[in-house]
């Protein structure tokens, strides 16, 4: 780390809270699940710490919310609330739904050609 790295970071003073909508959603999911008692904040801090301490973390912190989401998935899998395979399957379904949705219309999971309800 060079001193200039921090100097450059210190210059980014007035950035938006979230740079993309998905970051806000990922953030809010964690707050909501904690408030519901799915995990304690200490458990969450440990999970996030494990992700951001990885040596390949971006020095400028630009991948922070990618790591935030990875920490959330890992914690929920470890505690048995979700299965990784379900996340992968639903992610693929959302991509298919987006491709199948005409431009300008809201993307709905039901638009996935492989969605059970879309074949009715």
């Amino acid at each position: 780390m060079s001193p200039s790295e921090t100097a450059a970071l210190a210059g980014t003073r007035d950035e938006a809270v979230f740079s993309e909508p998905w970051q806000a959603e990922a953030f809010a999911l964690v707050v909501a699940l904690n408030e519901r008692g799915v995990f304690s904040w200490t458990e969450w801090a440990d999970a996030l710490s494990a992700q951001v301490r990885q040596t390949n973390a971006a020095a400028d912190g630009s991948d922070y919310y990618e790591r935030w989401l990875a920490a959330l998935e890992a914690l929920l899998v470890r505690k048995g609330f979700i299965e990784q395979a379900d996340v992968e399957a639903l992610t693929a379904a959302w991509h298919r739904a987006a491709h199948a949705t005409p431009h300008g219309q809201p993307i709905l999971l039901e638009n996935d050609p492989m969605h059970p309800e879309s074949t009715v």
Binding site: R36, L69, F81, D86, V87, W94, A100, I107
Partner: peptide, 23 residues
């Protein structure tokens, strides 16, 4: 056609699962 950012799709997937579970 529409395309979802990979991270946006992952968050939606997680939200879908957690909503279905009532969490």
């Amino acid at each position: 056609d529409n395309d979802l950012d990979p991270m946006a799709a992952r968050v939606r997937a997680l939200e879908t699962i957690l909503t279905r579970k009532g969490l």
